[in-house]
Nucleic acid binder design. Structure first.
Lengths: 190, 190
DNA sequence: GTTCGATGTATCGGCGCGATATAACTCTTA
DNA sequence: TAAGAGTTATATCGCGCCGATACATCGAAC
């Protein structure tokens, strides 16, 4: 039941490298997912507390540098349960993995994801985008008689954006496939 | 003070053409803004009620087709106050007009917006996108040493998307300018 | 004749955002 | 050395919107 939500997964993944405090978690997440649409403190701090009570993370007293009396900061580290949950989640690829937000978070963790799962997620996302393509084309065709230039233009632009993403995904899927069939090289996407 | 929020504006704009009931409003909005990310009923129905108490819209008993006993449906029409607010809002172009969601809604109503305001909104959006471009490039440069291929690829894709939007906006701005300097032709963007 | 999908209104829980408060540290500059 | 700004850092609170859900009717297919 308790399917890990995107926020929890993102924090788990960020904490996997090393123990960090809230502010730094947010910064790193912002760097991974893009500077805008970084998660808010109003979500982050309550989530951290929740995750402590759930036993996924715990306060890290050890790592405090003993320079002087440091400013108040609370570092968190993964517990065994947290590590286990992250591992399990990274190996999974449910339909929720290709939602808009979830996909980006999952993709940012691809380096820690096995190749087979990477491929499944990319294909799932691709299929989702194909559905959108179809839906938008449908709507665009249906509004044929309606003569609002700007609305149509907005649709066309949306359509193009999705088309671009499909192309991008195709490129990544190709790389993933050839890397798998060959050795175990990381994908060279550029 | 009471700056019209996006949801209210969208409903106001949809109702401007003719009186409609909730379900139909949602459908039309979905057709304008794209089939996915259509607004939910959990937002729509409460908003309609709120707008009635605010005097922006009112229940439309008149327009009921007298065929037989129609299914329960509640059509709404704009009041004078609602029409006034829409008109005022359509002529404005505050910074909120180039937020992600707001911009799409405003753009979808461009046919009812005067050319000068159209241009100001397009330029505002363009400037917003330029800032993002800068931010992402900055972040991409800063993560130079960090060697996570997938994270970098995600950033690059995000960057490309924003670049595309800037190009799109430039095209529209050009059209708008030449239309203004020439006659009063609607933009021919294709 | 009944099952299915679309039409239609409505509410409720809850999550996450944006705003805001607070405060200590750091770097500049007068 | 002291003021001031900018960054680092934690925390909470209200509120808006979404997703799920419930319920009911209609038209068409089978």
């Amino acid at each position: 039941m308790g399917r890990t939500d995107v926020l929890t997964l993102a924090i788990l993944g960020t904490l996997a490298e090393k123990p960090l405090h809230g502010y730094e978690i947010r910064k790193r997440l912002g760097a991974s997912l893009g500077p805008f649409r970084a998660l808010s403190y109003g979500s982050l701090y309550p989530a951290l507390k929740r995750m402590v009570t759930e036993g996924l993370i715990e306060v890290d007293d050890e790592g405090v540098e003993p320079t002087i009396n440091r400013r108040s900061r609370i570092a968190y580290r993964l517990t065994d349960a947290g590590t286990a949950q992250l591992t399990e989640e990274l190996a999974s690829s449910g339909a929720s993995s290709w939602d808009d937000d979830a996909f980006d978070v999952r993709f940012a963790m691809f380096e820690r994801t096995d190749s087979a799962t990477r491929l499944r997620i990319l294909e799932g996302r691709r299929s989702r985008m194909s559905e959108r393509l179809e839906e938008i084309s449908q709507g665009l065709k249906a509004m044929r008689e309606r003569h609002d230039l700007y609305t149509a233009e907005l649709q066309r632009h949306g359509l193009e954006r999705v088309e671009r993403e499909v192309e991008w995904l195709d490129r990544l899927i190709d790389n993933e496939r050839s890397a798998t069939s060959g050795k175990d090289d990381p994908a060279d996407a550029g």
